[in-house]
Computed example of a mutant assay.
Amino acid sequence: MKKIILSLIVFGATISLASAQILPAFQIGLKAGTNLSSLNSTASETFSGSNRAGYLVGVWTRFGAVGFNFQPEMYLTSKNVDVTSSSGGVTRAKFTSIDVPLLFGGKFGALGLGGRFYTGPVVSFAIDKNQSFDSAAGKVFSLNYQDQNFAWQFGTGLDIKRISVDLRYEAGITKQTYDGRQTRISLFNLSLAYSLVKL
Results as ranks from 00 to 15, higher is better:
residue 31 K to T: 07
residue 48 S to N: 10
residue 37 S to V: 10
residue 47 F to E: 04
residue 38 S to A: 08
residue 35 N to T: 00
residue 28 I to D: 08
residue 49 G to Q: 03
residue 50 S to L: 03
residue 50 S to K: 11
residue 49 G to R: 07
residue 38 S to N: 14
residue 37 S to E: 06
residue 46 T to F: 12
residue 30 L to P: 03
residue 40 N to Y: 04
residue 30 L to Y: 10
residue 45 E to K: 13
residue 54 G to Y: 02
residue 44 S to V: 06
residue 27 Q to I: 01
residue 43 A to N: 12
residue 29 G to Q: 12
residue 33 G to R: 08
residue 43 A to R: 01
residue 46 T to N: 14
residue 43 A to M: 02
residue 55 Y to K: 02
residue 28 I to G: 15
residue 54 G to T: 09
residue 29 G to Y: 11
residue 52 R to Q: 08
residue 53 A to F: 13
residue 43 A to D: 07
residue 31 K to M: 14
residue 44 S to Q: 09
residue 50 S to M: 05
residue 26 F to Q: 09
residue 32 A to M: 08
residue 48 S to I: 11
residue 42 T to K: 10
residue 44 S to M: 08
residue 46 T to L: 12
residue 54 G to P: 03
residue 42 T to W: 00
residue 37 S to C: 06
residue 36 L to K: 07
residue 25 A to G: 09
residue 42 T to G: 01
residue 36 L to T: 03
residue 25 A to L: 00
residue 47 F to Q: 05
residue 32 A to S: 12
residue 46 T to M: 05
residue 54 G to H: 12
residue 37 S to I: 07
residue 32 A to C: 07
residue 37 S to K: 06
residue 44 S to D: 15
residue 43 A to S: 12
residue 40 N to P: 11
residue 48 S to C: 02
residue 35 N to W: 09
residue 48 S to H: 04
residue 38 S to R: 09
residue 38 S to M: 11
residue 45 E to H: 13
residue 46 T to E: 15
residue 39 L to Y: 10
residue 45 E to R: 11
residue 46 T to K: 14
residue 54 G to K: 02
residue 49 G to M: 06
residue 44 S to Y: 12
residue 48 S to K: 15
residue 27 Q to T: 14
residue 34 T to P: 02
residue 48 S to A: 11
residue 42 T to I: 01
residue 48 S to Y: 02
